[in-house]
Amino acid sequence: MAERDFGLEQLCPKLRTMPYTLTSPKDPRYNCVAFAVGDVKQFWYDVNINGYYWPPGARSADTIEGWVDTFEIHGYRQTNDRSLEVEYEKIAIYASEDGPEHVARQKASGKWISKAGKGRDLEHELEALEGDFYGRVVKIMKRKCQGGRRVLE
């Protein structure tokens, strides 16, 4: 039987009815933004103390614009198409009325994968994390695979 994250299921009830797979242990060292760009050593956030990283020039980490800036810096551009396009890598930003809450990236298989805060990485349906906690998907961004190859699997 597949392992479950009951705490996350409580926050994201759609996980109870949609399949998901936990793919890592809990780790506070990196968050969903870091994971989406392939960094598992830093927690990406703009704070005026050392030990955190936020791309120079990107707007506040508490704004959707700041997250969009961050992914634009990494070559992504906004799109409305959340389907799998094999020649593109895609990310999806979730936001609530408070601002950006979460980001997932699409794998070559078409499944989405993300890091749940300080918790675990999981592979999931894009809609499975939508709800009161992470809000809904408000931005899809994509970048062309470099030389036909994905930067991240």
Binding site: G7, L8, L11, K26, N31, C32, V33, F43, Y45, V47, Y52, A61, D62, P100, E101, H102, V103, K115, A116, G117, K118, G119, F133
Partner: peptide, 11 residues
């Protein structure tokens, strides 16, 4: 720890 495990925001 229990309440903030799934937060992405340091704030």
């Amino acid at each position: 720890k229990e309440d903030t495990e799934h937060y992405s925001s340091l704030s």
